[in-house]
């Protein structure tokens, strides 16, 4: 379980948000929604301590992550998978090697074991025929899927997605959404998804947190979101041109 307590973050004199409190339960898929620039990705990067807050803390399975030593923090981070907005694939190595990368350093597996696990993960994201393609040869959707395969290769407990469908066509977005649902349901991974795509939110999430006006403006389940009368949330949903049926 992840508990976010009284979190506050500013960059210089610009306050991003303050007083953010949020619980993410095991097995849940939480969507963090809000306008561009409201600090969704910044909030997610606090969950595995890629950024440090001005105030407040994040507790992961009882551990205050900002009080951990760097060595312990790195061990904890291995339990997180992170799909970055642009996939953040290492462009000096092939797509296959990107997926194999964590295994080569964090396991003592032999080459055939690594190959088996890499192919398993690539198969899950429907890219088993990717071979030794360089990352430059991949389309946006393929990059995201390779990034997802790399994120799950160490069998994480938590999976974080930063704008997983941004910049993709509707069909490819749906494929990515299907994968997120598959990861959540089949692998029982707790997922946190940063997005402003309401279509995705309603398909994949169990609950949603709405960041607005430099605070956590609304938080509830997807069923509650469907009937919410929160003015700013409704405006956001309307602006995203999605009607809740």
């Amino acid at each position: 379980m992840i508990e976010i307590k009284n979190l506050k973050k500013s960059f210089g004199s610009n306050l991003v948000w303050e007083d953010v409190n949020l619980d993410i339960h095991d097995g849940e898929t939480l969507a963090i929604i809000g306008k561009s620039g409201c600090g969704k990705s910044v909030l997610m990067k606090h969950i595995n301590a890629l950024l440090t807050p001005d105030e407040g803390t994040v507790i992961v399975d009882g551990h205050d992550i900002f009080k951990l030593t760097y060595v312990d923090l790195r061990i904890l981070r291995q339990r997180f998978g992170f799909l970055f907005q642009g996939a953040a694939l290492f462009d000096s190595i092939s797509a296959y090697e990107n997926v194999a990368f964590p295994l080569r350093y964090f396991t003592k597996w032999k080459e055939d074991q690594i190959h088996k696990r890499v192919m398993e993960c690539l198969d899950m994201v429907n890219l088993s025929n990717i071979g030794d393609k360089s990352t430059a040869e991949l389309s946006g959707g393929m990059r995201k899927r390779v990034g997802l395969a790399r994120a799950i290769v160490l069998e994480p407990d938590y999976l974080m997605y930063d704008e997983p469908t941004s910049g993709l066509d509707p069909e490819t977005s749906d494929e990515i959404n299907d994968l997120i649902i598959y990861m959540s349901e089949s692998l029982k991974i707790t997922s946190i998804v940063v997005t402003h795509d309401m279509h995705s939110v309603l398909r994949i999430a169990d609950s949603a947190a709405f960041l607005d006006e430099q605070k956590l403006s609304w938080y509830g389940t997807i069923d509650e979101l469907r009937i919410s009368k929160h003015k700013r949330l409704l405006e956001f949903i309307k602006a995203s041109e999605y009607q809740i049926g």
Binding site: R74, I75, R77, G86
Partner: peptide
Amino acid sequence: VSEQIDAIESMGFN
């Protein structure tokens, strides 16, 4: 700027 350093950190590397 392409978040590859963040990716390295988030995997548990130094």
